[in-house]
Amino acid sequence: MTTSTLAIGPSRAPTPQRPEHTLVALHGELDLATTAVLRERLLATLHHGTRLLIIDLSGVSFCDAAGLTVLLGTQRRAAGLGITLSLAAPNPQVAKLLRITGLDRSLTVHPTLHDALASPPTRLPALTVERRPAGNAHRFDRPSPTARS
């Protein structure tokens, strides 16, 4: 492999019936080579009608500070729209980085996707939003993109 790859798509995990949330699953390596496309795609998932954006990190095999910065930027943008961001199921490497940088205190991190889905959004939306159908996991075109800088 000569380049980092990162795919973003619907989570394969079963989604309980729950309105007004968007679930995004990331797969692959999250480094400087993949952050540009990730930032763009994550920001595209932020739209009115979503109160909670859950990012499933269980498929992320590597993440560095550049990747963390994108997650933090997404959280800030989400907060401005009244959307709560939750991170779910980081592997031990990602969890360690979140701890080292102190971001585990400013980002909401759940050990499992199940926990993230069971936790209600911690903030109210800034706007009155249209109610969406249950379990609107976000979908992207396949095959998975290969990101290059």
């Binding site: 492999m1 000569t2 380049t3 980092s4 390596e29 480094d31 400087l32 290059r148």
Partner: peptide, 11 residues
């Protein structure tokens, strides 16, 4: 000096 090669260096 291209981020595409970071994964090679990690390996």
């Amino acid at each position: 000096a291209d981020s595409a090669y970071l994964s090679v260096l990690r390996t």
